[in-house]
Design a protein around this nucleic acid. Structure first.
Lengths: 351, 351
DNA sequence: TTGTAAGCGTTATCAA
DNA sequence: TTGATAACGCTTACAA
């Protein structure tokens, strides 16, 4: 049976035996051609290649990987919190590209920061015998990854270090970023700089708070407790916290927002108070359309492409040589001034 | 060798033979337990399950799928233009969730609307013997998918219908959306409504233009050529086109933007002209933070979750029964008023 | 240079 | 209810 249009055999995928038969050789010879092994006469090779083209043969990589000594499946697994989140999707993209350059495919899953889902995804990936894992670890801990490790499947953490297990990790310079944000605001004249942060069981939240504290301590000596709000895991909570902070008697003149959602919440609060052009704001992580807002939103931007590329590099380095010391790569962040972070402090907020 | 901490054997993945040995049964019995086959004594089953837990055994699904009659790998492939794009990443998320409910994993790749990349990705997916494909087709045509079809691998197109091959497809109500946008602007009083569209080799661009034309024809009788600009594939080109359009002598009082990037370009142009609050804008596809802009951006929002869910539903329906007629599902869109689309027409733009 | 036999981890077949 | 053996599509080991 041949397809009248394209000459492609209908039915199931052809195998190397089908190719061998058509080429008039033993199936081992086909295998040799597929794996670029030496000792195949050029004309034999040509005949095999013709047959491959004619049948539109495509090697079954699963069957191949079962038998081959290195057991490689040329696929890796990526677990993020939520691919729909711009940070995660940009990461997924760079991981796919970097893995693709090494001819590896990427299985992707979203954990929603639920420990069981994270573990289940990794489990599914391992059942497919991925060659390695890149995990954005959730707050539940990663002890379960010891199994993968024992089985020789390398793991690289990205965005935050994993807990309960040592592994390669690629992180943004979180504390450096918030510290730079404080210095930036300080240079403009701000002395009362508040911080809105996420839940402190998140590594990034803690690091960013640390950088803020360091910066403020250097700038004015002490960090007033009332200028720090954490545990803000939703935009709404951030909005409420910002509103409360800014309507106090001695309100801060500048805000540093610990992440994207918090920035959005804070901007909404400022919007409600008609204070967008009176209170300085620096957000952590870039915001889509930040430059179309008025004023533009000054941010500490993460270099997602670098995070992804380093993660893949580390993963393949470890696939190649499992016994080197674990590395931690810190990717620089960049302060991008767009207006909101350059608003000078108001002398008399109540006047 | 046992791991001192967790009691997990180090080294390669255990096989059903290892499990069988530990449980004191033949390996076929383990296979029976794994596949929930009948005729296993409960106590035998229990012993096998204990062994599975002890060894932390995990079935190699690749080996399984090679041998099983249906050849299923419980994985599907998803090709989008760019996962980093919010539309695509939200789609990827819903596809992952819907596939996950059926215990299928998702391989994801980005084509960048380059025909060869699209084809190469599908080829890689087929080499992994995915059970089905969901493809956001590029402009290069999808004749190459005939191969997959002949091999019994179903394909579902999403966002746009494929070319050169008939298949199930899930689409947004593109022309209905732009038509609704025109009607919306018409109700407010606009009569000069311009359209900024993408390249016309894109199905969505054509549909949206069609809806616009229909709407304008109904509203004012004819569609002036000079109010339609297409081929705007980048934000920058859209910005230039919008600027040119709005500085004409008899400029339109409202803009409909054919997609996200075009909206952003147009908003930049309006920003440059300080005309954000004078020219009405309706964008196709929602924009992150649209409500934080001033005015908020009125959009025709696509229901990405429905698109993804339907795509997966169609795919599995066809995996289950390949011989039904191809379906085309059209998902409704929703006009979301946020301010920019409710700006009334200016009487005297030049005055 | 080419081919034969064995084996990877699993499921299918058929016998015990 | 259980097990021995073959088979899936491929790579490895070894022989011709």
């Amino acid at each position: 049976m041949t397809d009248p249009e394209l000459g492609i055999a209908a039915g199931p995928h052809p195998t190397i035996k089908d190719v061998a038969e058509l080429a008039g050789v033993a199936f081992k010879t086909v295998s040799r051609v597929l794996n670029d092994e030496p000792n195949v006469r050029p004309e034999t090779r040509a005949r095999v290649e013709d047959a491959i083209t004619t049948l539109n043969f495509q090697r079954n990589v699963a069957a191949s990987s079962i038998r081959r000594l290195d057991r490689r499946t040329t696929s890796i697994g990526l677990v993020v919190e939520d691919v729909a989140n711009p940070f995660a999707s940009r990461l997924a993209r760079t991981v796919q590209d970097a893995a693709g350059q090494r001819r590896h495919l990427v299985l992707v899953g979203s954990s929603d920061n639920v420990g069981e889902r994270e573990q289940e995804l990794v489990s599914q990936f391992l059942a497919r015998r991925v060659d390695g894992l890149i995990v954005m670890p959730g707050t539940g801990g990663q002890a379960y990854l010891t199994r993968a490790r024992r089985r020789g499947i390398p793991v690289v953490f990205v965005d935050r270090p994993g807990r309960d297990i040592d592994a390669d990790a690629v992180l943004s310079d979180n504390d450096g970023g918030t510290r730079a944000a404080v210095e930036h605001l300080g240079r403009i004249g701000h002395r009362r700089i508040a911080f809105l942060g996420d839940q402190l069981d998140l590594y990034t939240a803690v690091s960013r708070l640390d950088g803020y504290r360091t910066g403020v301590r250097e700038l004015v000596g002490t960090v007033p407790d009332e200028d720090v709000r954490t545990g803000l895991h939703t935009s709404e909570r951030a909005r409420a916290a910002a509103a409360e902070l800014l309507t106090r008697d001695a309100a801060p003149t500048a805000l540093i927002c610990g992440n994207n959602l918090i920035s959005i919440g804070a901007l909404h609060a400022l919007q409600d108070l008609r204070a967008r052009d009176r209170v300085a704001v620096v957000g952590f992580d870039d915001i889509e359309l930040a430059d179309l807002l008025t004023p533009g939103v000054t941010v500490v931007a993460q270099d997602v492409a670098q995070l992804g590329r380093h993660a893949v590099d580390l993963l393949f380095a470890r696939i190649g040589d499992p016994d080197t010391e674990y590395q931690r790569v810190v990717v620089p962040v960049a302060l991008v001034p767009r207006g909101s972070g350059e608003i000078p402090p108001m002398r008399e907020r109540e006047g």
